[in-house]
Nucleic acid binder design. Structure first.
Lengths: 346, 346
DNA sequence: TTGTATGCGTTATCAT
DNA sequence: ATGATAACGCATACAA
């Protein structure tokens, strides 16, 4: 590997001059400038960023800790981060905890892995990253980032539970509000809901949005129309009958997957989605556009969450005053009108 | 940030002694050892890996260049890489080219982006990565890695077209062979196929596997049973009639998505999958298990490709003699028996 | 306009 | 068992 010292010797100038020329500091004569630049090209000089980092005491890199790359929410968030980082000329050091592969579907109730996270954060700090973004696979409160961390940290798709570590989350409440408002606008008054798991923050916020939409449309909230699901297709299927038999004309499924289960049961009962019964989902999973008819749903703004997380990180690095005092940034969903909602027949 | 020098001063010893103790070099007395370790803990000492890297002239890091994080094949491959890297104690510097977002679905026919790739490779080399893994989104020949690169490079899910840069690819031929052999074993002799795009290497290898399975089962290859699709659901749908009307009893769809289109058309024609017509797919996309009946298919070994790519990289870094002289590593698919194939009625 | 010298935090050599 | 010192490649204050 060519170094500036070798370049200097080859050109018969000092390292300082080479360094100045390479960094466009000016002060060098056009003649030596050309000579050095030419030699740099010929000798295929590549700057050693590691040495530069040591000298400059910064790395322009941030550590990204992902709970599990293979969970569908993560890649889009990373994509958003990388886009913003490219714009800001920052690089990413990726840590994939592989939590799902290691602990199955149960890790997020426990805290066994907090110790692992601390270890990874220490490693990243050793590598002199300037900040850390933690990407959760399922939105929830996560306190795996030590409060006394000496560099900025941001929680993407989860709640840090402290304003010192900003949290970037989905605006589930507003997303649900839009979906259910649409049902109301189409004349539905008997609206059932199949929720996600009770302990989920997504579920709680979506339920609040559901209730606010009912209230704003002067529709009574009937607890009997509120079935508890578990996010899986089967729980959509198994909760359909109770709702239909109570006479609902529309069902708000808190995710697209459960909506698939509802479609299945409705088909068995000879009921047509979008005509006899209206359905809306949540998440805009790829499959939902293949449902027959395609499902009206709302996008999870995963990319935007990543982008925002990175933006907030850049603000932290610049010691900017952040706009959200509470440290919670809600990123809006995008409503997707498709074919699964019909006008209600009076 | 605490440094070795500060530790040394606090303990009244030299930096050399501190360094030796911190790295378990031995030679220090138990007394000073304890003193230093205690101080390190108290002062929250974190080693500066950047300085260490500069001194040691290595970084134990590799650069990973992904064509686009949001394409389904990429995250699993990265997952495999991170798993192997964790075992080998290497870290990952991630570069997301975002090719799909930037150029839509056409980039892989052009070479416009080769210049970008070269730039990213230079950046990564500046950061002193010890090797580079390039992850393609669709298997094809890609010559975006300069041949004169000074560090090891590996092509994951694509062909580098040179033995110097090992290529890790899916064993499409064998995967297709197993699928079609299964159809033959169930008594099918009139087997149609809906291919992917003609210029795709996946398509060509799968076709070879298809033909070998026919040959081994003494079934004539009828070119009229070979319909050209384009990987999209619609092309499965639109090619179904021609096949059915010619009397095939089974269809090999070269991906699960097109198989979905075949299901659609079959349902319209009142034909039952797994009874009237047997279908097999390819890729094991998540949706395929929700098809009714669930689709018999084969997994794309994406995770294994990443893992293998990283393993090969470690071999390169250790200057090992690699097993595959041609530099092409074929990773096996895993056959998935579900419900879409029935025995043929004579 | 150019060169000298110093230091970033670490490891390693060679004394003591 | 411990310490003084050089070196890794670079940027920079200051001198020339």
């Amino acid at each position: 590997m060519t170094t500036i010292k070798e370049l200097a010797k080859a050109c018969g100038v000092s390292v300082a001059t080479v360094s100045n020329i390479l960094n466009n500091k000016g002060g060098a004569s056009e003649e030596t400038k050309q000579k050095v630049l030419k030699a740099a090209k010929e000798m295929n000089y590549t700057p050693n960023i590691v040495a530069k980092n040591l000298k400059m005491r910064n790395t322009r890199s941030i550590g990204v800790i992902a709970e599990d790359m293979t969970i569908f929410s993560i890649p889009d968030i990373i994509d958003g981060i990388t886009q913003q980082c490219e714009e800001a000329d920052y690089h990413i050091l990726l840590t994939n905890l592989r939590l799902f592969k290691k602990h199955e579907d149960t890790y997020y109730h426990k805290q066994d892995y907090y110790e692992d996270v601390h270890k990874e954060i220490r490693k990243l700090q050793s590598k002199q990253v300037e900040g850390i973004i933690y990407i959760s696979a399922h939105e929830r409160v996560i306190k795996c980032i030590p409060e006394d961390i000496r560099i900025p940290a941001v929680m993407a798709y989860g709640y840090s539970d402290t304003a010192k570590i900003p949290s970037i989350v989905v605006d589930d409440e507003e997303g649900a509000y839009q979906l259910v408002s649409h049902l109301a606008a189409m004349g539905h008054k008997q609206i059932g809901v199949i929720t996600g798991k009770k302990d989920s923050l997504h579920m709680q916020a979506r339920l609040e949005g559901f209730q606010r939409a009912l209230f704003d449309n002067s529709i009574l909230f009937n607890p009997k129309f509120c079935m508890t699901g578990d996010w899986n297709r089967e729980s959509g299927y198994s909760n359909t009958d109770a709702l239909i038999d109570q006479g609902v004309t529309a069902i708000f499924c808190m995710n697209d997957v459960m909506a698939g289960g509802v479609y299945d049961r409705l088909e068995e009962r000879g009921l047509k989605v979008g005509e006899d019964i209206s359905i809306v989902g949540f998440d805009n999973r790829e499959v939902s556009s293949y449902y027959k008819p395609p499902l009206t749903t709302t996008t999870l703004p995963l990319h935007d969450i990543g982008y925002k997380a990175s933006e907030v990180m850049m603000g932290l690095l610049a010691h900017e005053e952040l706009p959200e005092k509470e440290g919670i940034y809600k990123v809006p969903c995008e409503f997707l009108l498709r074919k699964s909602v019909g006008e209600v027949n009076e």
